[in-house]
Design a protein around this nucleic acid. Structure first.
Lengths: 217, 217
DNA sequence: ACGATATGAATGAATG
DNA sequence: CATTCATTCATATCGT
């Protein structure tokens, strides 16, 4: 996670093109050209986490993804699929880690979110500092969250209204700031925090044209 | 030399001491990071390898991870994620190494192997022999855990083909950027007209990009 | 000490 | 949604 942010912020529109190759040495079977996997900038991560934790966004719909990515694009190159994967991964990992300590003999209750009261699951027997460096107290977006989908039945409607206090002008270039991520290093394990997800966003619109949509969650 | 096998008998892993010691150099100004990464004891490694090689455990499930970590905990502090990562890494690295010399099971010469297409200058790690020759025998007979899944191998065929479809459908430039905060004043839908459902095609690389995503309008 | 290497940890991407 | 693969970062450890 961010306990040691390992990213070099390439928010500039420059493309990390692999090139080179040239068959140096052996093993040039694989042409790993353009391992250009999206490397989120700190600002992007901050926003994503904010959406995730403060707004309860877990599986954004296509519309949402579209807007989110559009918004994040000002902080660096990003595509819809990146947002899509991010949420999927983040969610999956949160669950998985949890699964490591609690499982066996009982794993058929999924009552995931929707638990306004702060449970004291503080027993974080497991590290899994998934969100290390993020304050549940909504440090930045103390406002409002119109981010819809609170019991909304219809589609969508994420308006992701939030006043991001991110004064980071890091649109291009300077990334020396690295705002929030670096702040929390000593906390170690913050535990997972299902506490935030106050979201009742259970409506999964339609998946993709695939038709294999499975509204399980 | 290959068998680097670091061996530091530290059965009592309470050594998480901030390196510091001298307070010079790097990173000593940050409070006790305490995030000292797990350093497996020799016993733990032995058992892990035993599971890996003798029992064919490659990707233990959450259930197994729990038991394994519980078992290993006798030999030092360990947590589920450590086990998880260990197997992932071990498998990945063994595989990575194999990827180069997949042929002639007879050669014994071992060349430094350099990663192809390495542009990551400062960070090359050469896949050297991880464990050349591990003795499949548990000398100390500390128990074998028997997590089942014995003959689950069948691995071996490298599937190094990845269809790399990069759908750079990103809208031209980041003109949408300026929408940051102002993007949200709506309640229902913002901007995008759902009529053009083609928005799906934005993400989900695999399912759409194959050209069959024509929304047929 | 420094540099190379080994390896734990993290996470993007992809598949089932 | 679960699992897995690949790649990369970070750091412990060893060799010189």
């Amino acid at each position: 996670m961010e306990t040691h942010q390992q990213q070099q912020n390439q928010q500039a529109p420059n493309d990390i093109q692999d090139s080179s190759s040239g068959g140096s040495g052996k093993g040039s079977f694989l042409c790993r050209q353009s391992s250009t996997r999206w490397t989120p900038t700190t600002d992007q991560i901050r926003i994503l986490k904010d959406l995730y934790y403060n707004n309860g966004v877990r599986s954004p719909s296509a519309d949402q993804i579209q807007r989110i990515s559009a918004r994040l694009r000002q902080y660096g190159k990003i595509e819809g699929k990146n947002v899509f994967y991010w949420f999927q991964n983040h969610k999956a990992r949160e669950r998985q880690k949890k699964r490591f300590n609690t499982s066996t003999t009982d794993h058929h209750h999924h009552v995931p979110l929707q638990r306004p009261t702060n449970i004291t699951l503080a027993n974080n027997k497991f590290p899994t500092n998934i969100n290390s460096g993020y304050s549940p107290s909504s440090p930045s977006s103390t406002g409002v969250l119109t981010v819809g989908q609170i019991g909304n039945n219809g589609y969508g409607s994420i308006t992701m209204e939030k006043s991001f206090r991110d004064c980071s002008i890091s649109a291009c270039g300077s990334s020396t700031a690295s705002a929030s991520e670096s702040l929390s290093h000593n906390f170690g394990w913050v535990g997972i925090d299902p506490a935030y997800s106050s979201s009742y966003a259970f409506f999964e619109p339609k998946r993709f044209i695939d038709g294999t949509h499975e509204e399980g969650q």
